[in-house]
């Protein structure tokens, strides 16, 4: 039993799950890098490594909330949102990180659409939070599936992960929303510029 780390380029798909195009190979199931687009894993007969169902369901639920948020004020914004939800669902079904990320991006696109159309701030916040959580849960479902498979009991870890992300997201957006409410009235463009500058500087440092 040897586990090695694999590198999956987010752009390049790891074949997984139901496409049935998997190569059966002798020996251990650990492969090295998954950089090649045509990488076929050496997982053998039997072990179902499709995404964990619990996290996948939570992901869809969060995606639904995102659509709800962006459709709250601007009904037409629900259309791209639903498209994102479909992409997300397809990604979860096929175990594709790329599709799940794509679904999240389209969900965010729905939020932008709603924002430009003048949607209420609370709805937009819900839309963005839902989209990020949908991606987070979806990616976790895929990784959990690849590492442990469907047959394992992974519920508790998934629940913990989901709850932690939800807690962080809710508290974070609560604080942001609180500040927004406190500053209701004018639109201090100065504040915006300062905050933006802060984000650019900090994000640049933190993501190194």
């Amino acid at each position: 039993m040897s586990g090695t780390s694999a590198v999956a380029n987010d752009g390049d798909e790891r074949t997984n799950g139901h496409d049935g195009d998997r190569k059966l190979a002798a020996g251990e199931g650990a492969t090295g890098s998954a950089d090649d687009a045509d990488d076929t894993e050496t997982h053998q007969r039997g072990v179902d490594r499709s995404p964990a169902t619990f996290s996948a369901s939570l992901s869809l639920l969060a995606g639904l909330f995102s659509v709800l948020g962006s459709g709250l004020g601007v009904l037409t914004a629900a259309a791209p949102g639903f498209a994102g939800l479909l992409v997300l669902a397809a990604g979860l079904y096929r175990g594709s990180r790329r599709a799940v990320t794509g679904g999240g991006v389209v969900l965010l696109g729905g939020v932008v659409f709603a924002g430009v159309g003048g949607g209420p701030p609370a709805g937009l916040l819900l839309g963005a939070l839902g989209a990020l959580l949908a991606w987070d849960y979806g990616e976790n479902a895929i990784t959990m599936g690849e590492q442990l498979g469907r047959a394992a009991d992974t519920r508790r870890a998934e629940l913990f992960h989901a709850a932690a992300s939800l807690g962080v997201g809710v508290v974070g957006s609560g604080v942001v929303y609180g500040i927004y409410l406190g500053a209701s009235g004018g639109q201090p463009v100065t504040a915006l510029v300062f905050l933006l500058l802060a984000v650019v500087l900090l994000a640049g440092v933190l993501s190194e």
Partner: peptide, 29 residues
């Protein structure tokens, strides 16, 4: 997410909503 939302908020619609929503990205980062 934060940067794009904020940029779009400023350039396109000059409203606080998107800026607010984008903050979620920084929260998770």
């Amino acid at each position: 997410v934060t940067l794009l939302f904020a940029g779009l908020a400023i350039v396109v619609d000059r409203q606080a909503g998107l800026l607010l929503a984008g903050a979620v990205g920084v929260v998770f980062a």
